[in-house]
């Protein structure tokens, strides 16, 4: 159980509180910058250099390099800003849902349909 789950008690869920906001500030600020096309292109042209400008920690840098959504969340990433990072690679929320739950996209979508029955 992670420390956030210990604080808030919701398994599989990181409540984005002050501790996460502090931990993830640089990472989220970088992802927020991807609202601008010029910044998305600058990231693609020089990923290392772009990450350095925002002072990412080594763990955040590794998670960005690995496109590892669960690790990005664990290191303070906020889903709304991470969505802008994922968008650079044309990943939608169902791709991300599948990646985070270890299911295929089809299995993830089937689970959502099941929730409506």
């Amino acid at each position: 159980m992670g420390e956030n789950t210990e604080r808030h008690g919701i398994p599989g869920t990181i409540i984005f509180d002050g501790a996460e906001a502090k931990r993830g500030y640089g990472l989220n600020k970088m992802c927020f910058s991807f609202n601008e096309e010029a910044n998305r292109n600058a990231f693609l042209a020089d990923e290392d250099g772009y990450c350095r400008r925002y002072g990412l920690t080594d763990a955040q840098r590794d998670a960005i390099r690995g496109r590892d959504v669960l690790a990005l969340l664990e290191h303070g990433g906020h889903p709304y800003y991470l969505a802008k990072f994922a968008g650079i690679f044309h990943l939608d929320v169902q791709d991300l849902g599948a990646m985070q739950t270890g299911l295929s996209k089809e299995e993830f979508k089937a689970r959502l349909v099941e929730a409506g029955r």
């Binding site: 599989g12 991300l96 985070q100 689970r111």
Partner: peptide, 13 residues
Amino acid sequence: HQLEGKRAGFINK
């Protein structure tokens, strides 16, 4: 709805 984490896809009808 929930987008993120291992509980992504959570729905409570």
